[in-house]
Amino acid sequence: MPELLRIAGLTAGYGDVQVLWGIDLDVREGEIVAIVGSNGAGKTTLLRTISGLVGARAGSILFEGREISKAGPDEVLAAGIAHVPEGRRLFKGLSVKDNLLLGAYLRRDKAEIQNDLDYVFDLFPRLKERHSQDATTMSGGEQQMCAIARGIMSRPRLLMIDELSLGLAPALIERLSEGLKAINGNGLTILLVEQDVMTAFELASRAFVVETGRIAKAGETVVLADDPAIRQAYLGV
């Protein structure tokens, strides 16, 4: 599979605090890749740096061979990377449909936007039922569906999801995982940040383990799942 994203020696931080200390990571087309690690390891900062919300200090981010480490959020999205932020961050006071349309903000192809609306409504029928409701009044699981659907509405080549399972019941996580597998089956590459390593390893074929701003381990999830150190640190066995 051709390479979609390659990050090399990436450092970033906020003010005097450096969070990322030289991240190397790659994502190939069609994959689901997970980034796991404990709280404060830098997973969210990594996604925020890729999407241009946080400026990269050194290193490179190549997306389809193009350097995007200096690009702003709108350029990164236009290049084809959508970012579903931690805590869903849906827009209060706007309906589910308006939230989804904001996902397609950069697009001008009205007919195709309508097709994609139908696509995400097919994927998550709950959103169709609630399309006119204030998005932030839905349950946590429904909000996560809406946030993922909003990410898809930009028609990205790579979908980054920060904390898919946070605060959700196991049955809902199962439902969302199925949705993600279906989306991936339709050809969308996914980069998933997840604190729940079990969920992450079930979904992803490869994973990167982040510890204090560095990649501590990387590899196939089936191999990592048998790694004694990872089993002890993250899987609780």
Partner: peptide
Amino acid sequence: VAVRMDRSAAALMG
């Protein structure tokens, strides 16, 4: 409206 509600989430919408 999106910018008003959540500036950085709005930036992620492009």
